[in-house]
Design a protein around this nucleic acid. Structure first.
Lengths: 336, 336
DNA sequence: GTGAAAGCGCTAACAA
DNA sequence: TTGTTAGCGCTTTCAC
């Protein structure tokens, strides 16, 4: 890499002259500016990012901590974050907590050494189970703002981007009950431990209970379970099932494939829908009706909020929570 | 963040004394070391990463350029890279090229300003189609080593981690022909434009041609096609189909679901298998037989290779190509 | 209009 | 054993 020093030497001017010329300072003579810029162009000069960061005590880099990159939703949020951050002139350093509290803490510490200006993260499963939040608070008090998305820690005072999980399942369940006249709606979830999983379940529960005081019918699947087996057994046990709402994409896809496999007609005999993305819906026949979370939008919002805060750090503004509403994309896996 | 300066002031010693004490230099007196370390501990001192990078002209950061983070295989490789890099004390800055040549070039340029010590990347689709490689060569000649994985540019002299794509389909096709006695094997691909897609197709072709000079039967799907419709039509047109090899996970899953949907018995009437991961195989009933690419291993290898090279930059070693062999994980979607 | 110098936080050669 | 100094690459104030 060429440095200002080298350019200065070759041009027989001082380093500061070169610096000013390249930064279009009014101080420098027209002719000099031209000479400097030409040589800089020739050598493909770019200011050294590290030196700049040190000088200005800001890195223009965001630390992103993702619990699980293999989760399609989270990957898509990451995509949204990356794109928005890049557009706004920021880089992202990605850490994967792998749902582990320990790794989450480490990542936070590791990057809080001047590597990044702030964080965007979704809380790890273990962290949510143990309900630990000190590491977040500590980071924030060090002057590194955090934006949480999707899985958030409610007791941490920071910006948040969330989904209307409760409303989404509440409304959808009501729709199945009222508009389609479904009587036996089950809720299937692989994410019972997560804040969002709980919210989704509550939305479903409320709608069911409100409807002639019916009993909720919930299947919770654990990570180590054989996903397919569990769902098949559930279907066999509950012969009257006429609708399924899945809290996660895998449960949705497996449910619909299982229903078909057991000879049920979708959507005549049974409606199936779930939180999932477009790509997922291709993995079943008929396609799965999906509750879309607009992952990319969530990511973009999170990036915007963080960068906005970084640029107004002195103002000490109040924290905000942004809700990105889900939308129901209907396919032939439901009646109406 | 606390700095050496502040510690030094509080302890009434010089900055260098503090620095040396914290770095366990033999020079400093036992007592002083103790005092320094205690105060550093108290204040949670961590060396400023940016200053360190500037001083040592290395960032301990790797630039990773991924064409598409929503691709499960690529996401998994990223996971492998992140984990290995973290273990070896490196951070990763992630850029997503979104299969665009322009974005790939930009990312390379953007990070070649001292932000990273080297790159790990998989070539964008557009880049492979246009066969451009100058930006890679330029980066390498600037002293920033590159490790390419999966989709590589053969004419660029750099370390590579690849999959035995050709052999995988060649051997699998032969197995279907010889062991299962399949007569009409089709190859379905959504990635015809990629180097790996082409290799997979060639492996299949060779095996088919070698077998009594049969004709290959290939379905190529484009990004904008209706994936499900295309495959359904293909099945209907080729009634004699008794095996499908899919070059990508979506094609595999949709093929098997379509076959079942059309009333074919899997694997009695037809065997279906494809390049995919374990999670994907859950999305069909029966589960899809998968050619596993060991994405995490690929990622880990790439990280190791790059870091190894970074640490031996002075030696100017020859470039290496590492082949990570696929393995066939059989399920009930094939006979033997 | 141009340049010298200080300083961001750190390490390391050298001096004391 | 400890401290001084220079320097990594850059910006910016202040002097010329």
């Amino acid at each position: 890499m060429v440095t200002l020093k080298q350019l200065a030497k070759e041009l027989n001017v001082s380093i500061s002259t070169v610096s000013k010329a390249l930064n279009n300072s009014e101080e420098i003579g027209e002719e000099t500016v031209k000479r400097v810029k030409e040589l800089a162009e020739l050598y493909n000069y770019t200011p050294n990012k590290v030196a700049l960061s040190l000088k200005q005590s800001k890195t223009k880099t965001i630390g992103v901590i993702i619990p699980n990159i293999l989760n399609h939703f989270l990957a898509k949020v990451l995509f949204g974050i990356e794109r928005e951050a890049t557009n706004l002139g920021y880089n992202i350093i990605t850490c994967i907590s792998n749902e582990s509290l320990e790794k989450e803490k480490e990542s936070l510490l590791l990057l809080a050494n001047g590597s990044v200006d702030g964080f965007i993260l979704s809380v790890a499963e273990e962290t949510q189970i143990k309900n630990e939040i000190d590491h977040f608070k500590k980071t924030i008090s060090q002057g590194l703002p955090i934006v949480m998305f999707d899985r958030v820690a409610h007791d941490v005072l920071c910006d948040k981007v969330i989904v209307d999980d409760f409303d989404a399942t509440y409304n959808t369940t009501k729709k199945l009950l009222d508009e389609e006249g479904r009587k036996n709606i089950a809720f299937i979830s692989n994410i019972g431990e997560l804040s969002v999983g709980k919210l989704r379940e509550r939305g479903y529960n409320k709608a069911i209970l409100e409807h002639n005081n019916q009993e909720p019918l919930v299947l919770k699947i654990k990570k180590k379970d054989d996903h397919q087996k569990k769902i098949k057994a559930f279907f066999k046990k509950n012969k009257k099932l006429d609708a399924v709402i899945a809290a996660d994409s895998s449960s949705g896809i497996i449910s619909i494939n299982t229903a078909v496999n057991l000879g049920l007609k979708v959507p005549k005999d049974i409606s199936v829908l779930g939180f999932a993305s477009k790509a997922d819906s291709n993995h079943s026949l008929p396609r799965l009706t999906t509750i879309r979370q607009h992952a990319k939008v969530i990511g973009a919002n999170a990036a915007q909020m963080l960068i906005d805060r970084l640029q107004k750090m002195h103002l000490n503004e109040d924290v905000k929570t942004k809700i990105v509403k889900t939308s129901l994309v209907k396919t032939k896996s439901m009646l109406k």
